[in-house]
């Protein structure tokens, strides 16, 4: 299974150049059944990344462009009066896909944001008293512009907490940029991609990830990190229990991707910036900087 995953990462590497770490984290997030938030300035390949992942995982994919005037019905769907049958029928919205790219989520109003986030949390939507199950697997990759940009409605902390990971892509390095400039059209490349994995296999991998062993010293380490974030003066607010669970799940998946049967403290350290940074209040905006005290000051038991 690990080879499948490696193939998958390699294929994605061909499209998005020089961003292997981010691709791995994104994959880790999806395998942990979490939702992903990509935060960066426009044009660094957020959409490309999500599109590529959807293609490679063989999931049906829909992009929702969040604008300031988008309505919840545009996401979830709405009931339309059928003149022939003389009744209302529900037209499913884009959320009924397996993978959704919520592009520029912070451009829309909080109402539309919360419609999406509620669906993410509950794996189902309720319209006019009727409940519809969302498809499985169900992944949301949301992208957002840095908050200080104009005309944005930043996601509140409670909503941010629902994303398992937040990653930043950043500019490509010199070499990658050159090959990007020289290479083919990315869109074309994506359309040529073939799925590397079946839905059953994906489900199996997800199941196996959850079975990875976490020993008691490791749990101590995670607890120490959480306690530090709660008690230290570096942060205004500490990590929530959900964050702790997320950290463990992500670390387990990471250990699985590294082909190990038990989680090591290093796994926790690797996923920590992506899992914890967006849940902590800190002066800095850089994820590595935010979690630096957690990594540096908490001793491994």
């Amino acid at each position: 299974m690990q080879t499948t995953l490696n193939n998958l990462v390699n294929a994605a590497n061909q499209i998005i150049l020089g961003k292997e770490a981010q691709i791995r984290l994104a994959l880790c997030c999806l395998l942990s059944k979490g939702h992903l938030l990509i935060e960066d300035i426009p044009g660094v390949g957020k959409t490309t990344l999500s599109h590529t992942l959807a293609k490679l995982l063989g999931l049906n994919y829909q992009r929702i462009q969040f604008t300031s005037d988008i309505l919840p019905a545009d996401i979830i769907g709405c009931s339309i009066f059928n003149t022939e049958k003389h009744e209302f029928s529900f037209h499913k919205g884009p959320i009924f896909n397996q993978m959704i790219l919520a592009d520029e989520i912070n451009r829309s109003t909080p109402k539309a944001q919360s419609a999406l986030l509620e669906a993410m949390e509950e794996q189902q939507v309720t319209v006019e008293g009727k409940t519809y199950q969302l498809s499985t697997p169900f992944f949301v990759i949301a992208t957002q512009n840095p908050n200080h940009q104009i005309g944005t409605f930043p996601l509140p902390e409670s909503q941010l907490d629902r994303f398992l990971m937040r990653i930043e892509l950043g500019y490509p390095d010199y070499k990658a940029e050159r090959s990007l400039l020289m290479g083919e059209n990315r869109q074309q490349l994506i359309s040529c991609l073939k799925p590397q994995i079946t839905a059953e296999k994906l489900a199996l991998i997800q199941k196996n990830c959850a079975k990875i062993h976490a020993s008691s010293p490791l749990l101590d380490y995670i607890q120490a990190i959480i306690n530090y974030s709660r008690e230290s003066a570096d942060y205004n607010e500490g990590l929530s229990p959900r964050a702790g669970l997320g950290l463990l799940t992500a670390a387990k998946t990471w250990a699985f991707m590294e082909n190990r049967d038990a989680v090591l403290p290093e796994d926790v350290q690797v996923v920590l910036p992506a899992v914890a940074a967006h849940r902590l209040k800190h002066g800095s905006t850089n994820a590595e900087e935010i979690v630096a005290p957690l990594i540096n000051k908490v001793a491994i038991p």
């Binding site: 290093e266 540096n296 001793a299």
Partner: peptide, 8 residues
Amino acid sequence: QPNEGAND
């Protein structure tokens, strides 16, 4: 370092 994992 106290925060250094064995693999690192």
